[in-house]
C-alpha cells in the first residue's frame, strides 16, 4: 500500500505541472486513517522489552524509591504526600492513575499525574512554585549526556503512584465539560500542523507501517497500539538510564516538531495526554509500570 502511494507521489513531483495537481493531492496521505493494528511497532517494542536482561527492568527500583520519597516529610510544612488526592480521595493511590487525567475541582483544571503531584507539593508541603520548578520537579529534565541518570523527583514519585494501578486498564472518562474540552483540544492538536517542520502528531502516529529512519512508529489512533504505548509510561529509557514520564514523551515529540518548550501540566500537555489515554482506554492492555523504551 505504502509502495503504490509512494510511486504516485514520486510521479507527481516529477511532472510538476499544474495539471498533475489533483493526482498529487489524492496521493497525499490524507484525512482518514484507519485503526487496524500496527504489527511492526508491536514487534519492535516487544524486542525492546525483551532486551532487558532476564526481563528485569531497572525502573523497578524507582517504584520503591518513589514510595520512600512519597512518605518522607519534606518542604516548608514538613509534610509527606500521603494525603494527596489523585482523584479518588485523599491518600487513595490504588487505581487512581488509571483514571487520569481528570477534572479537579480544587484547581479548576484537568490534570494528569505530574500536574497533580506538583499541586500537592505546593498545597501540602508548602513548596513555592518556583522551587518546585527549579529544584524538585525539574520541568527541565537532564539528559544522560549531562551525567544525570538519577532522574527527577517528579519521575520517581510518578513511577510509584502509577505502579499502584498496575494490572488495570486505563479508564479515562469524558464525563464533564472540562474533560470534553481537554479531549477536543488534544484531538485538535493531534491533527494540527504547526511548528517549524509543518508536522502534526498524526504524520508520525496516525498511520500503520510508518517508519522514521527505519524505526517503526506507533499508530496512536490504533487503540491496541495506544494501549501498549500509554500503559508503559512512566518508562525506563535505556538510552538515558532513567525513568521518564508521559509529559516528557509529549515534550520530546513537540520538540522534534520544533515547537517551543511545552510547559509541564499545561493545558495542551494535559489535553494530549487525555486524548491518548482515551484511545488507550478503548483497549484491554493493562497498565504495567515501569515500561521500557529504547531511546529518547
Amino acid at each position: 500500500m505504502m509502495r503504490s502511494k509512494t510511486k504516485i507521489a514520486a510521479a507527481c513531483g516529477f511532472t510538476l505541472l499544474a495539471a498533475a495537481l489533483p493526482v498529487c493531492l489524492a496521493a497525499n496521505p490524507a484525512a482518514n486513517p484507519v485503526n487496524q493494528g500496527n504489527d511492526d511497532y508491536v514487534e519492535y517494542q516487544n524486542n525492546v522489552d525483551a532486551s532487558l536482561a532476564d526481563g528485569a527492568n531497572p525502573g523497578a527500583f524507582t517504584v520503591d524509591d518513589g514510595k520512600a520519597l512519597f512518605l518522607k516529610p519534606r518542604g516548608p510544612k514538613h509534610k509527606d504526600l500521603s494525603t494527596c488526592d489523585f482523584g479518588l480521595g485523599p491518600g487513595v493511590l490504588k487505581g487512581a492513575y488509571a483514571q487520569l487525567p481528570r477534572y479537579f475541582k480544587d484547581t479548576g483544571r484537568v490534570q494528569g499525574l505530574e500536574g497533580r503531584l506538583m499541586t500537592c507539593m505546593t498545597t501540602i508541603q508548602g513548596y513555592p512554585e518556583a522551587d518546585i520548578k527549579s529544584k524538585f520537579m525539574m520541568p527541565e529534565y537532564k539528559t544522560s549526556d549531562e551525567g544525570d541518570s538519577s532522574g527527577s523527583d517528579l519521575a520517581t514519585l510518578a513511577t510509584y503512584i502509577a505502579a499502584q494501578s498496575n494490572g488495570l486498564t486505563f479508564d479515562t472518562q469524558i464525563n464533564n465539560p472540562q474533560m470534553e474540552k481537554a479531549y477536543h483540544l488534544g484531538e485538535y492538536m493531534f491533527f494540527h500542523r504547526w511548528g517549524e517542520m509543518d508536522l502534526n502528531c498524526a504524520t508520525c502516529h496516525g498511520y500503520n507501517d510508518r517508519t522514521v529512519r527505519g524505526v517503526p512508529l506507533p499508530n496512536l489512533l490504533d487503540t491496541h497500539t495506544a494501549g501498549m504505548v500509554m500503559t508503559a509510561f512512566p518508562a525506563y529509557v535505556i538510552k538515558d538510564g532513567t525513568m521518564r514520564t508521559q509529559w516528557w514523551r509529549n515534550e520530546r515529540c513537540v520538540m522534534a516538531m520544533r515547537l517551543p518548550w511545552l510547559k509541564i501540566d499545561s493545558d495542551l500537555d494535559n489535553a494530549l495526554t487525555t486524548f491518548m489515554r482515551v484511545q488507550a482506554s478503548k483497549s484491554d492492555v493493562k497498565i504495567n509500570i515501569p515500561g521500557s523504551k529504547a531511546r529518547a
Binding site: Q173, N175, F190, L221
Partner: peptide, 21 residues
C-alpha cells in the same frame, strides 16, 4: 454515548476552533 468515537481530523476540526486552541 459520552465516550468519544474513533478520532478523526474532521471531528477535531468540528469540535474545536483555531482561536480557542
Amino acid at each position: 454515548a459520552a465516550q468519544p468515537g474513533p478520532a478523526s481530523w474532521a471531528d477535531a476540526n468540528k469540535n474545536m476552533d483555531y482561536d480557542t486552541f
